[in-house]
Nucleic acid binder design. Structure first.
Length: 887
RNA sequence: GGGAGCAUAGCUCAGUUGGUUUAGAGCAUCUGCCUUACAAGCAGAGGGUCGGGGGUUCGACUCCCUCUGCUCCCACCA
């Protein structure tokens, strides 16, 4: 063995970069289609300009564990990495950066702006991918994709054209969610509703008589007084007797005195507010719909920035929130404000900019969703795609059954520009490129020239490109072309196996990928969707920049090592459960690395004596551990199959720490300075090798480091490609017998501790009952026994000693003078009481005819065994008690 | 307002079609140990009656109802 001068602590910094570079150099992460079974994962592409946060850490650690494990089970594993262009977020960053340099976006042409954007992308893009390498992510970097790579962008355009020609994409004026900060429409899913304290203003609207205000008025409650200038009507419920006198009347809008009609619609709730609603079709989705029903004019008084425009007549140019304050004052002064009260309303905020969303009428592109959603629902309902945990099926179903058309146009420049070309007369054509558009346009007007055509200014929603991701990373030509044959890559890797993502993009992304795969491949895009929880701090708060409660993953890895951090992330992360992250978990991960490191230090420090015979206790330990290993591997496999990754991890943690280190190594460990026999040594190295392979998917760096040192390795060898050990038949009875031994040892240690006996003082052990004799050498060695005796009945000396039981086996440690009889008697009495109560319960069951008749045989037999065991124990205890009380 | 989910030891969680002698684990805690692999460690110990109530059953942490508390999702009541 090398490395005899190893430090007592594992130093991750020394090994991580070395092995990552080695893996890269040897292209171990790279995959090409071959005859093996494929295993593929596509990364949820992070924002190209993003930086790594704890959510990424969790998500990518899980992906790496799955990919590495697949690679070690003979599969051709491929993890495709990449980034997302994230149009709103990135454009906002570029705009802000330009602004800081004194450049206003509006002063730039589209081309100039995009040049800046690409420069920004080149500079900041991919930082996050470099950070993933620190984590050990075994992505096939040669396949790295970006959603705005030329072929992927082309796929997006083709997809648009495909759906347009199929009649699923349409253009229309609709009420959309307008983000006045990023100056674009956003989809319904990008609006976050938040409970926001606001005010309900009660305004007097005077009734008009030939355009002149009378002294009669009605009171209308509104949260948005700044929109009264856009009112088109006042609406009452037709069933509401309080307002019947208003039928057919006209009302005057306060301050501006415009006359509007009173209309009736049962949309109005009689018992909310005053039962009287002002209808503002341009600025509220419901009012818009009422307006449609009653053919009301639409008067839009708010511009794209959220400021009042000249149509408002008053407060022109004021921001909507400033205008609200000012108009309340004006209304009050003019005697129109009856009262105001506090009110909590659900206000929509932009997911990206957190600006208050303004419902706004505008011309946008939409994709019809009904049919797409129906098929996508079926794929999940029929379990072709499994959601893990499956509670998300309900959420998914609910969304798919209530889906609305998807607003896919965005008033931005960073993204795929909509392939619609307008003719001078306002007609338009939709084609993949300008040339095709010209040809199509000429069919409408033969005289048209290319220069007459003007392409739509808008780009497509980012999710309109991400939904193609699992297809287009392999075969961009296939996206948008349902009839085309898949290329070799897509045919091999698709459908992908597992998708690891967060539940908050289940609809944004997961559902839509299912739709796209359905449309273009007639298939599912992945079989399992593992939904991780949100990473929160110890107090359960979401990690966020503004709270400053998110640790920097890079610093964390520098402090504890990548393996330690990976372990810390996985320790408490059942699927779908939020994880309450605490640095102490990472500490635990680091400590485990250290434990493995030190186990290696112990083993590699041994000298081997080929002539030496294997001791009986070592042979027993080897037999036991071999069987234990197989049994544990079976459990671990089961956990992995069920995606119970933290359970798999904990099972391996205990296997290594408790079974291997605390028991196995302690049993076989030669005395200090003495050699070990070759048989035991070789078997131990074999176990270590197996354990490292089992642990490698979870902790890749330390396992590679130690595996490389465990034996002579050739350049190009790696634990990454070593195979996972295979489960073999094991002897459960042998494991039980050995563990009767370990329980006995633990009980003896307890005796020593409670009696204040040094471990150095050898003891005698007297055993009565069915003890597995073969295990005695292990017990004798580990508990420092001078003598072990199996008896039919205890003699007086033994009877007066310290006592304990393992199962129904009785033990005595003769300890003249050290046993406090009163204490011992009290202990025994307590145990007798407990057992008698227990026996009573068992007997109550057994004497219940219904139980005996209804319960399965095994259960009854179990109860009878409980009864007889309890009786045996009671007899023994009472006998023992007698001796104490006699003496 | 509608829907879903959760509530088990101080903390984070298991508990797989109701039945395995005293409901498990990790961490934390307490006690004793610097024993030449590891104090980022070793050995041992204590700790819950499974949110409250009711029901079904021979038998309930597990199934049903109800109450309480929390979380998430969806939603156009001004």
């Amino acid at each position: 063995m090398k490395n005899t001068e190893l430090s007592a602590k594992y130093n991750p910094a020394e090994v991580e970069d070395k092995w990552y570079a080695y893996w890269l150099k040897n292209r171990f992460f790279h995959s090409e289609p071959d005859e093996r079974e494929p295993y593929s994962i596509v990364i949820p592409p992070p924002n190209v300009t993003g930086v790594l946060h704890m959510g990424h850490m969790l998500n990518n650690t899980i992906q790496d564990v799955l990919v590495r494990r697949a690679r070690m089970t003979g599969k051709n594993a491929c993890w495709v990495p990449g980034t997302d262009h994230a149009s709103i977020a990135t454009e906002a960053k570029v705009v802000a950066k330009l602004k800081a340099e004194g450049i206003d976006k509006s002063s730039l042409t589209r081309e100039e702006f995009l040049k800046h954007a690409w420069e920004w992308k080149e500079k900041h893009g991919g930082i996050i991918l470099e950070q993933l390498k620190k984590l050990g992510a075994s992505c096939d970097w040669e396949r790295t994709k970006f959603t705005m790579d030329e072929p992927l962008s082309r796929a997006v355009i083709k997809t648009f054209v495909h759906f347009y020609k199929k009649g699923l994409i349409y253009r229309g004026v609709r009420m959309v969610n307008w983000d006045p900060q990023s100056l674009t429409a956003v989809s319904d899913e990008e609006v976050i509703r938040k409970d926001t304290p606001s005010k309900l203003y009660y305004l007097r609207y005077f009734i008009s008589e030939n355009g002149v205000a009378t002294s009669d008025y009605i009171v209308i409650a509104t949260t948005r007084p700044e929109t009264i200038m856009a009112d088109a009507a006042v609406c009452i419920n037709p069933e509401d007797p309080r307002y019947h006198h208003l039928r057919g009347k006209k009302i005057l809008i306060p301050l501006i005195g415009r006359e509007i009609p009173v209309i009736e619609d049962d949309y109005v709730t009689m018992d909310f507010g005053t039962g009287c609603l002002k209808v503002t079709p341009a600025h509220d989705i419901n009012d818009y719909e009422i307006g449609l029903r009653h053919r009301l004019p639409v008067l839009d008084i708010i511009d794209e920035h959220g400021c009042l425009n000249e149509k408002a007549q008053i407060l022109v140019g004021e921001d909507r929130f400033v205008a609200r304050k000012k108009i309340v004052k004006m209304l009050e002064e003019a005697g129109h404000l009856e009262k105001e009260e506090s009110y909590n309303s659900q206000v929509g905020y932009s997911e990206r900019t957190n600006a208050v969303i303004e419902p706004r009428l505008s011309l946008q592109w939409f994709l019809k969703m009904d049919e797409l959603a129906k098929d996508a629902l079926e794929r999940v309902e029929s379990d072709q795609i499994r959601l893990i945990p499956d509670k998300f099926k309900n959420t998914y179903r609910h969304w798919m059954e209530n889906v609305r058309d998807w607003c896919i146009s965005r008033q931005l420049w960073w993204g795929q520009q909509i392939p619609a070309w307008y003719l001078p007369d306002g007609q338009f054509v939709v084609e993949c490129d300008a040339e095709a558009a010209l040809a199509a346009a000429r069919a409408l007007d033969p005289n048209i020239q290319l220069s007459d055509l003007k392409q739509d200014e808008d780009v497509l929603d980012t999710w309109f490109s991400s939904w193609l991701w699992p297809i287009s990373v392999f075969d961009p030509e296939k996206a948008g072309c349902p009839d085309r044959e898949p290329n070799a890559e897509l045919a091999y890797y698709f459908p992908t196996n597992d998708l690891i993502t967060a539940p908050d993009i289940l609809f944004f992304w997961v559902a839509r990928m299912i739709m796209a795969a359905n449309e273009f491949c007639g298939q599912i895009p992945f079989r399992n969707v593992y939904l991780t929880g949100t990473v929160r701090d110890k107090l359960g708060r979401k990690m966020s920049k503004s709270l400053g409660n998110s640790p920097d993953p890079i610093e964390l890895m520098e402090k504890y090592g990548a393996d330690g951090v990976r372990l810390g992330m996985l320790l408490c992360s059942a699927a779908g459960n939020d994880i309450l992250f605490d640095e102490s978990q990472v500490e635990q991960g680091r400590n485990f690395c250290n434990k493995i490191w030190n186990a290696y230090r112990l083993v590699c420090g041994w000298t081997v004596d080929a002539a030496q015979e294997q001791t009986p206790h070592a042979r027993l330990a080897v037999d036991w551990f071999q069987n234990k290993l197989y049994r544990t591997m079976e459990v671990v496999n089961d956990h992995f199959e069920k995606f119970r990754i933290s359970d798999a991890l904990m099972t391996l943690y205990k296997l290594f720490w408790d079974d291997f280190c605390a028991w196995y190594l302690e049993v076989i460990k030669p005395e200090f300075g003495k050699p070990i026999d070759k048989t035991t040594f070789d078997q131990t190295i074999g176990f270590f090798d197996t354990l490292l392979r089992l642990l490698h998917p979870i902790m890749p760096f330390i396992t590679e480091e130690l595996w490389q040192n465990l034996a002579e390795r050739q350049e190009g060898e790696t634990i990454m490609l070593a195979q996972q050990p295979q489960v073999q038949a094991y002897d459960a009875a042998l494991i039980d017998r050995f563990e009767t031994g370990t329980a006995t040892i633990a009980a003896l240690r307890n005796v020593r501790q409670s009696k204040g006996l040094s471990p150095k003082e050898a003891l005698k052990l007297v055993i009565k009952g069915n003890f597995p004799e073969e295990i005695l050498p292990v017990v004798a060695r580990m508990a420092n026994l001078s003598e072990t005796v199996l008896v039919e009945a205890f003699d007086d000396e033994a009877a007066a000693g310290a006592s304990f039981m393992v199962g129904t086996i009785e033990f005595r440690v003769p300890l003249t003078g050290l046993v406090n009889e009163a204490e011992e008697a009290a202990k025994i009495t307590a145990e007798i009481e407990r057992l008698e109560k227990f026996l009573q319960g068992v007997r109550a069951k057994l004497s219940n005819e219904k139980f005996v008749n209804h319960a399965p045989e095994q259960v009854v037999a179990m109860e009878r065994k409980k009864e007889s065991d309890a009786l045996t124990k009671l007899t023994n205890l009472k006998e023992q008690l007698c001796k104490f009380t006699k003496a």
